[in-house]
Design a binder for these strands. Structure first.
Length: 273
DNA sequence: AAATGAACCTGTTTGC
DNA sequence: TGCAAACAGGTTCATT
């Protein structure tokens, strides 16, 4: 389900519900998730109280009192939701979580690109999965001048640069195409040929599309569901993503699709140079 | 160092 | 209709 807005929306919804909840049971139904938890993980987290839910990139961090942080990544197809305990098990319900107050959550992920791992909260930034990540796109550190400095020394198309988590995290395939459309820049343009003014515009548009989508509740995915398994509202208006062959909403030119590093990019050949 | 392509999986959509 | 190929939101690994 995830791009960054979906994860951030989920975080915002989960935070008040899970704060102060005490974990009573953690069950793994299969051992071959991408980052297998240590065998003693249930023991280390049981009877521990959740203090907060935070986010880094597309990772959801469940922070406990006097216990390691449980980090959840939903990959491409993960869902993390409350359910009645007696809900019949789906073949892809990989992780079951019970709380002392009787509530029950599940991690369901058919493609199994998602992962869970434990992380020492005191050494979070140094964790192998976090230490090489670029800035958060919605923080001030991600600015037009920062983006420009990345572009200057890059030898890759701008779309590939935006998707590179070493440069900036959380800009996924949908919002990379959308931000480039709003900025009038083709995804195939070499990053080094992006001007300072364009870098400013692009940075602002990345923040704009992400912020707008978070405000709408994270709604861009057809199989997105929130923590209560409610589908998204599809309130975010996508201009080019997934619209190859259809008219550009601005100029009616036919939108094109190209493949870059194995991913689809969409653009208007007239509006984007 | 930086960039590319393949790999990890299953489910759904598209095209013949 | 049926079947196979193409495609899907992300990250990571090996190879240049």
């Amino acid at each position: 389900m995830p791009e960054l807005p979906e994860i951030e929306s989920l975080r915002q919804k989960l935070a008040p519900k899970l704060k102060n909840a005490v974990l009573s049971k953690l069950v793994f139904r299969r051992a071959d998730l991408r980052a297998p938890l240590p065998k003693d993980a249930p023991k280390r987290l049981c009877d521990k109280r959740i203090t907060s839910i935070t986010r880094r990139s597309k990772y959801l961090l469940i922070n406990f009192e006097n216990a390691p942080t449980l980090v959840v990544h939903l990959g491409m197809s993960g869902r993390f939701f409350f359910a009645p305990k007696q809900l019949p098990l789906d073949a892809h319900d990989h992780v079951l979580i019970d709380f002392k107050d009787g509530r029950h959550m599940r991690l369901r992920d058919p493609r199994r690109f998602g992962m869970l791992f434990l992380c020492d909260p005191a050494k979070q930034a140094a964790h192998p999965r976090f230490k090489d990540l670029g800035p958060e796109p919605l923080e001030a550190e991600f600015s037009g001048s920062y983006l420009l400095s990345c572009c200057k020394r890059a030898q890759t198309p701008i779309k590939s640069l935006l998707m590179n988590a070493h440069r900036v995290v959380g800009v996924g395939n949908i919002y990379a195409s959308e931000a480039l459309f709003l900025s009038g820049i083709r995804p195939t343009r070499m990053a080094a040929r992006v001007t300072a003014a364009e870098a400013d515009t692009l940075c602002a548009n990345i923040k704009r599309v992400l912020t707008r989508s978070i405000a709408a509740g994270g709604t861009s995915f057809r199989d997105y569901v929130d923590a209560e398994q409610k589908p998204g509202l599809y309130a975010v208006n996508l201009n080019v993503y997934g619209r190859a062959g259809r008219p550009c909403p601005r100029c009616a030119t036919t939108i094109k699709r190209v493949t870059q590093t194995g991913r689809s990019s969409f653009y208007c050949p007239a509006c984007q140079k």
